Amino acid sequence: MGELRAGRKAGGGGDGAALAGAVAVLAAANVLNNRVAPRLAPLTSAAATGALLALARHRGITWAEIGFRDPARGLRIGGLLASAVAGGYAVGIALPATRPLFRDERALSLSRARVLEEALLQVPFGTVLLEEAGFRGVLPALVARSHGPRVAAAVSSVLFGLWHVLPATDMAAANPALTRLATGETSAETSAETSAETSAETSAETAGEGAGETSAEMSDGTAVETTRVVAGSVATTALAGLLFCELRRRGGLAAPALLHLATNSLGYLFARLAPGDPGGTARRTV
């Protein structure tokens, strides 16, 4: 036991540098995939995944420590959870009360070819590959060497939450219904606010000077809503990271990867399948 602790201390500095390097690789990939070249995300993520795995192996971390183990068990667990996600989505679009939550403009505005690209290429190789290899594989393995598995799960999950700041900003603009839910608005409140904003706009246009003030107030309100959506997304994805880490502990990387894949890829499918409101403006591009 004493030798093991001494070994951990001796390698602590190297593991810390490796952890910093892994975080830097992930941060760079996050900006590239969300802001610079989103369509090239599969290539960026593949390169980043290779760099993370090379870094981990250079530190002497085994494939089993990274999470490449128990494939049969992981496929069983992940398959069951993926089926549950599909069932939950089917119920969600069938119920009028929850149906608006699935109308995401990012999916509705895409052609069928682009939806297939997102579901079959961008999500598996541009999102799931890197996030699972990074946040459920390499990062926990590096942290666990010095601080144990519980701290490793917590650290990687917090970083996983922060990873979603940029995507959550886009989501706030693409899915207004989900934004209202995240900010705690009810349908009545939303209708009242819409009516008030319409009246304010009309008065502002008549008065002239009020137009600028109304625009500034609406901008401030949107910024506040976006901030709340981003904070909520960071918190929920951090909690999801803890769940994924537990699945990884039980069934290796295959279990969380299948759940992650189903959650994201099926989201595109069910957004397209969700019936539109009779008077809605949601559009589907052929």
Rank of each mutant, 00 (worst) to 15 (best):
S265M: 03
C245I: 00
A174H: 11
V123T: 09
S83D: 07
L247S: 06
L4T: 15
G126S: 01
A172M: 10
V85K: 09
H147M: 11
L130N: 05
R35W: 12
A41M: 04
L81I: 06
F68P: 01
G126H: 00
R5W: 05
A223L: 10
A154Q: 03
V128D: 04
W63L: 15
Y89G: 07
A153D: 12
V229P: 06
A177V: 05
L110Q: 14
P124T: 05
Y268W: 13
A10L: 14
G161I: 04
T227S: 15
L243R: 00
L269M: 02
L129D: 05
R284F: 02
G280M: 07
R250M: 10
L259I: 07
G208D: 04
G267T: 09
A47I: 08
L75V: 14
L239Y: 02
G74K: 03
E65L: 01
G161R: 07
T127A: 15
T186H: 04
A238V: 06
L52W: 08
A20Y: 05
R69V: 11
A168S: 14
L116R: 13
V230Y: 03
R136E: 02
L239H: 04
L80R: 10
G210Q: 12
A274N: 05
A174D: 12
R250D: 10
T186Q: 05
Y89T: 03
L4S: 14
A18W: 12
V155F: 10
G11Q: 14
L40N: 02
A196S: 12
L116S: 12
V158L: 14
G11T: 11
G134L: 10
E185M: 14
F270D: 10
L142W: 01
W63R: 15
P176K: 09
F270N: 11
A154K: 03
W63M: 13
E225M: 12
T62A: 15
E193Q: 14
T236N: 10
T127W: 00
